[in-house]
Amino acid sequence: MNLDETLHELCQAAVPAFADVAFVHLYAPLPVGDETAAPHGVLRLHTTDRAPPRKAATGGTGPLPPAADTVQAAEAVRPAATGPLAKLLRAGQPVFGDRPGIRSVVAELLGVANDPAAVPPGRRLILAPLHGRSHAMGSVVLIRGPDRADFTADDLIVASQLATHTALGIHKAVLYAHEASVADTLQRTMLPPSLPKPAGVLLASRYLPSSRTAQVGGDWYDAIPLPGNRVALV
């Protein structure tokens, strides 16, 4: 399963049954393998999912309340290595939006750092770090509209399970993509830089790997001139 499929599964599980909005930020570049160095650089918005408009639970006819429907996320965030956001992601534990000191962190992810009051109030927001085997990989922000009940302590456990499953999937997808890239590079380096030009024969070649899912093809080849104006093709 690749990265996009992993995050699509997360959104399918979370929206709309569990939350009305989900934002997923990932470090760019993502750490590979079991390296222990803390990731640095930029958190980029990778995936956004929203529940379709619906009638309010109170019987109204309007769409989802603006507090959830209009919330946006920052396209890119550059957290300080020792700042509260980076520390929270390294800790790996999901938190409610009403936890002391969290509003400014969430405001940074939502792109409203200068206006923390724009963050959905109370326990209508959960920030769950995406933590791999040994490092932070990003975060998922889950938001409920005011027409739904607040998140509960049990919901925090569910968010933790979703984040853990997703982080492990991201870890595997990134590692697989890295190994596939190494294998592809190795195959290309094994190809001869040029083909011989025997008399009476015109040789041409092309590297054509198979599909991404099969990850095979592009086998090594060569052309060898033989006595008697013969050519061996490998």
Rank of each mutant, 00 (worst) to 15 (best):
L168D: 04
L168G: 05
L168V: 06
L168N: 07
G169D: 02
I170V: 15
I170T: 06
H171V: 02
K172M: 10
K172E: 12
K172D: 15
A173M: 03
A173F: 00
V174N: 02
V174F: 03
L175C: 08
Y176M: 03
Y176W: 08
Y176Q: 02
Y176R: 01
Y176N: 02
A177Q: 13
A177S: 12
A177M: 07
H178M: 03
H178L: 03
H178V: 00
H178I: 00
H178Q: 11
E179K: 05
E179C: 00
E179W: 07
E179A: 08
A180H: 12
A180V: 05
V182D: 14
V182L: 15
V182S: 10
V182C: 11
V182Q: 15
V182R: 14
A183W: 11
D184T: 13
D184L: 15
T185H: 13
L186V: 14
L186M: 14
L186Y: 13
L186I: 12
L186K: 12
R188V: 05
T189G: 09
M190F: 15
M190H: 14
L191D: 06
L191T: 07
L191A: 10
L191H: 10
L191S: 03
P192K: 02
P192H: 04
L195F: 10
L195R: 07
L195C: 08
P196I: 06
P196L: 07
P196W: 07
K197H: 07
K197W: 01
K197T: 05
P198E: 07
P198G: 07
P198Q: 08
P198K: 09
P198M: 09
P198R: 10
A199W: 04
A199V: 05
A199C: 05
G200T: 04
V201K: 04
V201D: 01
L202C: 03
L202D: 03
L203P: 04
L203K: 02
A204T: 15
